[in-house]
Design a protein around this nucleic acid. Structure first.
Length: 607
DNA sequence: TCCATCAATC
């Protein structure tokens, strides 16, 4: 009997539920294995198959309706629902399904457990994951490689440390390639690329099978620590193993070269690739964004003519490139493109827009994007706070910080950096110190060099230089050059030559190649009339043979970018620039502020 | 019916 006839007779005697019928009507490939379709078990198999197909097509509601209509749901049907939800990133629904399943006294098996663990991972919920782990032990669902690998993945993603993931890994008697890849990925995604590489090395030593999965994650590990040497070695191994045909592997190689600063290599491999996908393009665009933003625009302009539609990841990099170049009109144009494509709901992209508008000087637009966000994360708040801070709105930053904490988001070190830097620039010293203490006392965040540098800068700007020095002396670790540099800046601004000389000497001990420090130190001596010392330092500076690169500023006015440097005399609009500068100085004087002498001294040095 | 890899934001 042909399948077609079977199908029609089935339809006649045992009508399909509407959902199945709907599927059959629109399906090109009519299901043919229906020779036992009269039996309820077979009908359940069929329905489960259809549920899976629905999930694969992203038809989540259809899958659910069909499941709800099933009279007899076996463990496979339940598991298919859980796995389907998890694969569509509907992790909370997957978890709900699992809970319903247990409540319905249906016994989950090893397939169910590994599927629901994926949902726990997606929700980043350690408590759910631990619950499932306990459930599996209690019900004797142990010793299955799928379950162990999923457990590792869950622990690696949900725990701050890799301890539990390692414990599961050690307990696996016969590790498969997935076990190794999961462990390496756990370390690498957790920010410990070195350890990831160690595990990869161990894997090779134990002669475990390497495949495209392990290669791409190992290369990702090299990329994350910027280690070009290991990256090249693994690249060689990739060629030896014939894994060059794997797109993920080649994409990770392009990414590795970008992150290691080898853009010409990255570009070369990109062009040599016979097959490219959206990730390949996004990788190169993101790679260039960091070091050569204009070039990333060029690559972006080429991708569409090569048949690739930019997605939110592409736009995030391109918007970051606009921010780096501070090109407002270009950013606005691309923002328009984002809205046209309906991508403005992507959170990372919206956060990049907040940052871009702030860096392009349009803080009102930053604020608009921020306010219109229905769901804000830590990065959204941080971007807005950094933007406000850079524009001198210290009080707004403090308000935002308090609102953020109120909304239940836990601040991290970067947010504190934003608050402290804003307080520093707005002269809100006492508030800043309160946040500094709160960071340590309430949130148990240990300040690093950058934070100390920021607080030293804040105290120094306000003239509390002695206090800044005492803070440096109380630091629990050796201060670095940026901390001493902050003190040096303060000494210079408030004319404290002795402390300034000490700070300058510390900076020079740590970073002898910083030319600006020699200039500052020599100026301190010059101010005291100690010309012998002045000459000694200048000679020392000449000995380094390092030229300070001239600082350059640029501004976009009416679609045109104007760029100028210190003592620039050329250029068609330089007269305007000096005119505005003089106007500013005049207003400054009228408002009761005088330009600092040492500042003008530096300007004359061309530094 | 189930597991692992590559691209984005402060």
């Amino acid at each position: 009997m042909s399948s077609k006839r079977l199908l029609s007779s089935t339809a006649r005697f045992r009508p399909f539920p509407p959902m199945i019928k709907n599927y059959l009507d629109c399906s090109q490939n009519t299901p043919i294995q229906l020779n036992t379709a009269y039996a309820p078990k077979a009908s359940s198999f069929l329905a489960t198959d259809l549920i899976k197909s629905y999930f694969e097509k992203g038809l989540i509601r259809e899958a659910r309706s069909l499941f709800d209509e099933m009279p007899d749901r076996d463990v496979v049907a339940w598991t298919t629902m859980i796995a389907g939800y998890a694969s569509c990133n509907e992790h909370a629904y997957a978890w709900g399904m699992f809970c319903n399943m247990v409540r319905s006294e249906m016994n989950p098996d090893e397939f169910t457990v590994s599927s629901v663990l994926k949902a726990c991972k997606g929700m980043k919920s350690l408590s759910c994951g631990v619950l499932v782990h306990g459930f599996a032990i209690k019900h004797g669902i142990q010793g299955f490689i799928y379950v162990d690998n999923a457990l590792m993945d869950m622990y690696a993603t949900c725990c701050a440390s890799m301890r539990d993931a390692c414990m599961v890994f050690r307990g696996i008697e016969l590790k498969n390639p997935v076990s190794w890849t999961t462990l390496i990925a756990g370390y690498t995604h957790g920010g410990n690329g070195h350890h990831g590489l160690q595990v990869f090395r161990q894997m090779l030593l134990e002669e475990a099978e390497s495949n495209p999965y392990s290669f791409s994650i190992a290369i990702r590990a090299c990329a994350s620590i910027g280690c070009q040497n290991y990256g090249k070695q693994i690249h060689t191994a990739v060629i030896k193993h014939g894994c060059e045909s794997s797109l993920p592997v080649m994409n990770s190689i392009v990414d590795m070269y970008c992150r290691c600063g080898c853009l010409s290599e990255a570009n070369q491999y990109f062009h040599e690739m016979t097959q490219k996908d959206l990730i390949t393009w996004n990788t190169l665009i993101a790679g260039y964004e960091k070091s050569d933003s204009s070039e990333s625009f060029f690559i972006f302009s080429q991708m569409e003519s090569n048949g690739f539609r930019p997605d939110c990841i592409t736009f995030t990099s391109v918007i970051a490139a606009c921010a780096n170049l501070a090109v407002l009109s270009c950013g606005q144009l691309i923002h328009g493109g984002i809205i046209c494509r309906g991508l403005e709901g992507d959170l990372a992209l919206a956060n990049a827009l907040i940052d871009m508008y702030a860096k392009c000087g349009s803080i009102a637009d930053s604020c608009k994007v921020f306010t219109e966000l229905s769901c804000k994360n830590l990065v959204s708040w941080t971007s807005m706070m950094i933007g406000y801070g850079a524009h001198g709105y210290g009080r707004e930053v403090i308000e935002l910080f308090d609102d953020m904490v109120e909304s239940g988001i836990k601040p991290d070190q970067i947010v504190f950096m934003a608050v402290l830097s804003a307080c520093s620039h707005a002269g809100l010293v006492d508030q800043g110190l309160r946040y500094f203490n709160s960071m340590m006392d309430d949130y148990n965040i240990k300040p690093d060099h950058e934070i100390y540098g920021c607080v030293v800068d804040m105290l120094g700007r306000a003239g509390r230089v002695e206090e800044a020095y005492r803070l440096i002396q109380s630091m629990p670790f050796t201060p670095n050059e940026s901390v001493w540099g902050a003190l040096l800046g303060a000494c210079k601004a408030h004319c404290l030559p002795n402390l300034g000389k000490l700070a300058a000497q510390k900076v020079l001990d740590l970073r002898p190649q910083l030319v600006g420090t020699y200039v500052m130190l020599s100026n301190l001596y010059a101010a005291e009339g100690k010309w012998g010392e002045f000459a000694r330092v200048r000679k020392l500076m000449k000995g380094t043979e390092i030229k300070k690169e001239v600082g350059r500023s640029w501004i976009e006015v009416r679609n045109e970018v104007y760029s100028f440097a210190v003592r620039d005399k050329a250029g068609p609009h330089i007269g305007w620039v000096y005119g505005v500068l003089e106007w500013l100085i005049q207003h400054m004087n009228e408002a009761g502020y005088a330009p600092l002498d040492c500042l003008t001294h530096d300007l004359e040095d061309g530094t």
